[in-house]
Design a protein around this nucleic acid. Structure first.
Lengths: 336, 336
DNA sequence: TTTTCTTATGAAAACGTTTACATTCGGGCA
DNA sequence: TGCCCGAATGTAAACGTTTTCATAAGAAAA
């Protein structure tokens, strides 16, 4: 038997006698023969692998994201090559280089990646999808969480509950998500509420600091909206420590709907982000790109959803503020 | 310039003039040349990649595990190829085949993997480390969590607190971790306490069921030890719903120390498993195997640690039961 | 029997690197 | 000037597949 026949037999190609096919299969099993992946992908120019460039792997967010990606990848028989913790742009570039010739497509989520970076380091032939990115370039396919819409919807929800004096705890200044959330809050609170903004950095500790600050205020806000759940939880702990009750004295809302949010006391009203869907959607976009490389790029945003829990309740004398609140806020939409 | 010279220049090998090196580097940059990974690993027989075969990617455990693995891998410049959700042995075999020739080593954690499976599907030449496995074969390197020791230590801790009547909520019957934890509980509670065992399956819901059952008992146990934190939390919710106070009416303990454990009310006493360390340790073992393939195999277990929180407190009239309780229970040790 | 067509098999090129070996080119030494 | 030596570069094989093209072997048709 020649290598050619073996290859044909093992790949189920036509033009192989059933008899030889059986014979080859038998020998292969006996010899524990397994084709060599690198050699195969060298000649076929397919790796059946997609790469994921992530800033980090820590915490619930990335866990869910990878799960979503993996789910969709496995449904298509694709493997997953992950690469994380790019401290800076040059590290990201190195990671990108290391993936060359090992992946059929790339999922990129990194604060250090912008349009010039991609122009310099991403081969034009390699399909890619950008996640949660500030890059808005018609030459790339992007997929974002609707941070802006989610924050706006939550702010409106608080207004609908009757809260008129709302404090917002921000995320890190240089964070794209944080900036969008702040923008959403600003926009929704501009007309009809007293709004103040406290600094934060997405950490529980910074939320705790903000909570202490709020507790000490002479004129306390009626509600606090933290740019993520961990800060909301830190804030909650600080408020509780100083004897304030949530939501009776101060209402509280977060963003992300991390699993912990359901279990704190009181359970935290928050904005749910379907992170696994984000990963799954990104992979599906990527596969679409891989199959039809010259399809038009497009940017997509993923809807968020208000999850009302006990940490903020309608004030007794509250009148509806905006339109009647819908439980499921749909902020999705195709842009470009 | 010949390809050979280019290869030498780009790989920083000796015997290349500084001038030609510069020239080649310049041209490579201008052409955005990036070496082809598959081609390179075909000839060098190195992929700089390690594969991770995991049963799932869901939840805090795997998130932490992957983080630990990634941390250690990145420190050595290795990439990570993940593969998850093997419903059965044949799926695991397929996943294993797909990794052939793409990885330099393998981290394996799967309930479907046993010694015969490995003999049939794992090439002898491929270094591998087994995680959290029931396989105890001197031909493989294994790394386990000390489920047994942790459960025993927690049971002793409860006894030390003065609880004499303890209920244990088990995990799934076919789960290795669950069986070890039950064994630890049984052993520690055998002599000196009334012990009962309730069924569970590691899910919050099963914990909730057990909690309702406990609340309805005529003779309630003084303490409940759940085989994992999610069940403990479900149980906590059920107890609270029925008006019982924790720890005044029933004390409660879990296992895993998931992040939520700190935030429930009251905070949950639990057994901390350093999951990231498990991943990191496994990768380091694997690298060691890759570097010296004929070193002796060995089995290692990773210590657990009791984390006392408010969900169980020493009973007022409690006398110390065993030796004075040490906060950090060291159950580590090298076997074989 | 001869011819033609079909179909299974084999030979060889290609994929993009690395590396052992051969070659060339100066320069120092006799 | 001729020789030898070391350093820089080039040549070509090898890695393990897939795939195109050629060939051989039957089967069907004449």
């Amino acid at each position: 038997m020649s290598v050619a026949t073996v290859s044909r037999a093992l790949n189920g190609s036509a033009n192989v006698t059933a008899q030889t096919r059986r014979r080859i299969a038998g020998v292969a099993a006996r010899l524990r023969y397994v084709p060599h992946g690198a050699a195969r992908s060298l000649v076929t120019r397919r790796t059946q692998t997609i790469g994921a460039l992530l800033p980090d792997l820590f915490g619930e967010f990335f866990s869910e994201l990878i799960r979503g990606i993996d789910l969709a990848a496995r449904a298509r028989g694709l493997q997953l090559l992950v690469s994380s913790s790019h401290g800076d742009a040059s590290e990201a570039a190195t990671a990108l280089r290391a993936m060359q010739g090992r992946v059929d497509g790339l999922l990129i989520m990194s604060p250090h990646v912008d349009a010039p970076f991609l122009r310099d380091h991403l081969p034009a032939a390699l399909p890619a999808v950008l996640l949660n990115t500030s890059v808005a370039d018609a030459r790339y396919t992007t997929l974002n969480i609707d941070n802006y819409g989610g924050a706006r919807a939550m702010t409106r929800h608080l207004l609908d509950c009757g809260y008129r004096d709302i404090a917002f705890i921000t995320g890190p200044a240089d964070n794209f998500d944080a900036a969008e959330r702040l923008k959403g809050f600003r926009e929704a609170s501009a007309e009809s509420a007293r709004a103040r903004v406290l600094p934060g950095d997405f950490s529980e500790e910074s939320g705790h600091r903000a909570g202490r600050e709020i507790a000490a205020m002479r004129q306390r806000p009626q509600a606090v909206f933290a740019a993520n759940d961990m800060m909301a939880i830190g804030c909650l702990l600080a408020l509780t420590e100083t004897g304030l009750r949530v939501p009776e004295d101060v209402a509280l809302a977060g963003f992300d709907d991390i699993p912990i949010a359901r279990y704190v006391n009181p359970p935290l009203t928050t904005v749910r982000v379907r992170i696994a869907d984000l990963g799954q959607g990104a992979l599906e976009q990527l596969v679409a790109r891989m199959e039809t490389p010259d399809a038009p790029m497009h940017a997509q945003t993923l809807a968020c959803e208000i999850v009302p829990r006990a940490s903020c309740v309608p004030l007794s004398g509250s009148r509806k503020h905006h339109r009647p609140k819908s439980r499921k806020h749909s902020s999705s939409g195709e842009i470009s």
